[in-house]
């Protein structure tokens, strides 16, 4: 059972995530958008959206550090277990609360503002449910596990993080995850569920974060020649440049 939950399911989800994105990018570039609803309502969005997104950036950054950087590395540079713990919990709490409050505002907005609600697809609703569960469980793990230490102290950097790295290295060790508290197990499982849904939802916009804007020239020029009409020239029929 543990092998199924913490090896098979994650790999299936991860595969769906990767293959799904490739498929979506190839076949549905037109649908690749944030599907903004700001035109309908902007007062609540003005508060909720930046709160949620900046919070999420912090949360993702925290996960990258917590999951991918081994404890031995931070020990080696002289960061004590206690210091790391305090910084991680404080940062995680701040980012997590911002994301959670932002999400509550956004979901409230989506439900109560008529035009926004009628522009919500079924996929959006499923995605929101998963997202809410994952974020809530994550906050629970931070507060109950790390601050209130309900159910005993648990150092995820010796359990979940090691499992996650073994998982990425294709040598998964399910037993590490099986020993983790239920909150962590559920958080991981729902997160993988969210990854599996990811390519089929509006979440794809994460991968078009426009960092290239910082370096490209302001005005983009493009020639019509590369594509005559609506189809590309076939291989071997390229036009001769003058």
């Amino acid at each position: 059972m543990n092998e199924f939950l913490f090896i098979v399911v994650p790999y299936v989800c991860l595969t769906t995530f990767v293959v799904g994105h490739v498929w979506r990018y190839r076949y549905d570039k037109f649908g690749w958008t944030t599907r903004s609803s700001q035109l309908y309502e902007s007062r609540l969005l003005r508060i909720g959206s930046p709160l949620f997104h900046f919070g999420m950036l912090g949360v993702v950054g925290g996960h990258v550090i917590g999951l991918l950087v081994p404890q031995s590395w931070t020990n080696a540079v002289g960061i004590s277990e206690h210091t790391y713990h305090v910084v991680a919990v404080a940062g995680g709490l701040l980012a997590g609360v911002a994301a959670l409050v932002g999400m509550v505002i956004l979901i409230y907005r989506r439900r109560t503002v008529g035009p926004v609600f009628s522009a919500t697809t079924r996929m959006d609703k499923v995605m929101y449910a998963f997202l809410a569960i994952v974020i809530t469980l994550g906050m629970w793990n931070t507060i109950a596990g790390s601050i209130m230490t309900i159910g005993g102290e648990y150092n995820y950097r010796e359990g979940v993080s090691v499992w996650y790295r073994s998982f990425l290295a294709f040598q998964p060790d399910a037993s590490l995850m099986a020993q983790a508290p239920l909150g962590f197990q559920l958080h991981a499982l729902f997160a993988f569920g969210l990854f599996a849904l990811w390519p089929f939802t509006r979440l794809v916009h994460v991968f078009s974060a426009p960092v290239g804007y910082l370096t490209r020239p302001y005005i983009v020029y493009r020639t019509r020649d590369e594509q005559l009409g609506s189809h590309r020239p076939r291989r071997g029929w390229d036009r001769i440049s003058p």
Binding site: S208, P210, G212, Y213, R216, V220, R222, T223, D225
Partner: peptide, 11 residues
């Protein structure tokens, strides 16, 4: 445009 999707045709 952050995405660089808006362009001016050279021709």
């Amino acid at each position: 445009c952050p995405s660089g999707a808006i362009y001016k045709r050279v021709e």
